[in-house]
Design a protein around this nucleic acid. Sequence first.
DNA 1: ATTTATCATAAGAAAATCCTATCAAAGCAA
DNA 2: TTGCTTTGATAGGATTTTCTTATGATAAAT
Lengths: 298, 298
Amino acid sequence: MINITLKQLRYFEALARHGHFGKAAEACAISQPALSMQIKEMEETLGASLIERGPRQVRLTHFGEVAVERARDILRAAEELGDLARASRDRLVGRLRIGVIPTIAPYLLPRVISALTVHHPELEIHVRETVTPKLIQELGEGKLDTAIVALPVSEASLAETPLFSETFMLVRSASEASAPLPSADTLREMRLLLLEEGHCFRDQALSFCNLPSGPPREMLDASSLSTLVQMVSAGMGVTLIPEMAVPVETRSASVSISRFENPEPTRTVGMVWRKSSPLAGQLNEIADIVRSSAESRP
Amino acid sequence: MINITLKQLRYFEALARHGHFGKAAEACAISQPALSMQIKEMEETLGASLIERGPRQVRLTHFGEVAVERARDILRAAEELGDLARASRDRLVGRLRIGVIPTIAPYLLPRVISALTVHHPELEIHVRETVTPKLIQELGEGKLDTAIVALPVSEASLAETPLFSETFMLVRSASEASAPLPSADTLREMRLLLLEEGHCFRDQALSFCNLPSGPPREMLDASSLSTLVQMVSAGMGVTLIPEMAVPVETRSASVSISRFENPEPTRTVGMVWRKSSPLAGQLNEIADIVRSSAESRP
DNA sequence: ATTTATCATAAGAAAATCCTATCAAAGCAA
DNA sequence: TTGCTTTGATAGGATTTTCTTATGATAAAT
């Protein structure tokens, strides 16, 4: 392992450029002896002489000529590292790996991604869609930078910030459109269709009906909201979906959508990230962007 | 100008490789706090965090990942500079610019070049053929590494080492082959053909005849030994040429070659270089090669 | 709750770097 | 020649950097 220093390379480069110890030292803002010593040191370390010390002139040796080119390469690379650092701290740049739960992703992401792209054109966005526990795990493993999930998460190592709150809507078959609005309790007596286990939305729906979460009650659990709505449309029962999903999911299904009243079931959606994440500062800014893009519901 | 150090890059690279401050510090043969401090220092200098300090784990930030690649590039380049230095000091490598006077070059160089090529295959040999004063000047200007000239040169800034001594031969027209050998003094009375001004060989020949060097006596000065011999062959006079030139120059000319006796005119040919030249050590070795290749006269 | 692992911090020691002053050599001028 | 000037090398001491040991803090593991 060779033990030259960048400082020596800088001094040497200046010396090569000025061809004069005094001038080079001045350019480096040090005294001439300091430069002399460093050059000498560098020559000793390399075991080869870099300059020919003639009287009245400083001339590079053949090796010196080769060395100064290498030195310039190295110094340039070091500068570039600095540039890179500056770029990475000024703007949010590079990769942002964001996880989203399936009951939010299809409805929120299009708007979020386009908003992020506008604000940070150089940001490369990776999306991961899966259930909350997996997102939390991957966040912890450093495979994700942030996740959009239902709050609270209550992990000490994670920071969380609320984004918005969304209401759950009742989805009934079109024929039931005029029936009276069931209460949370009467809902329990109806055939309530749910997502499969693992989805937090399943638990939130059950909780609204004061039912315990747990193993499936019937073999009717769906793997997506879209399927749920189709099942309702086929007359298999009723379900709840987040308000944000309504426009997308009821476009091609003849179902009736109703808003609950008093109490209105809701959940808070928020963003979480590792407290130790170096992006922490910028993730707050990203949360702002997500928040405002979520508000502008089309 | 960014102020990171190669040391920091080394430490950071080790940290990235081991993913552990303690291990990395051990690998760098320093204490763990020293490494911690240098990493911290580097992050401050760059103004961007390189690693995410989670409990129980050290993970590179996105910028850290980019940075470690750059760091490896830089470190590799520095190592290469060391390799280059080693190569340049072990073997004589690169360019050797050698100047030779015209009365030696054509006869000596073929052998010298092939001998040098055998000993130092990676040596790139540049040859300059001109008269001694120009060679000395170019040596002083650093345009040549060494020169082969007639000694002495007597320049305080130049080192000189003798290579060999060569005799001057008398060249007469073939018809004069049986005439008695002229003495140095009788030579003065004959029509002595000489090289043009500037060639040291001209002065050496004049000096042998005890004639003052100076402006041309007649308008018959030749620009090469080859021309001189042709002129002799044409019956225009007599001349002297170095012994080494005989085989080459008399091949296609019908002239008579005679050796002087008591005193035999000679000159010493040697190699000179700047005392301050970094090649000084190796030039002695090269002188040896030249010397032995000159002895093996074919 | 205690122990362990791991990185950060602190304080003093060691090393490096730098500066001022001075020297030495060589070119230049009188 | 004899100073005089320029230029790089050297020396000694001050300053800054870097390192080590000792200790602290935090979270995981037991």
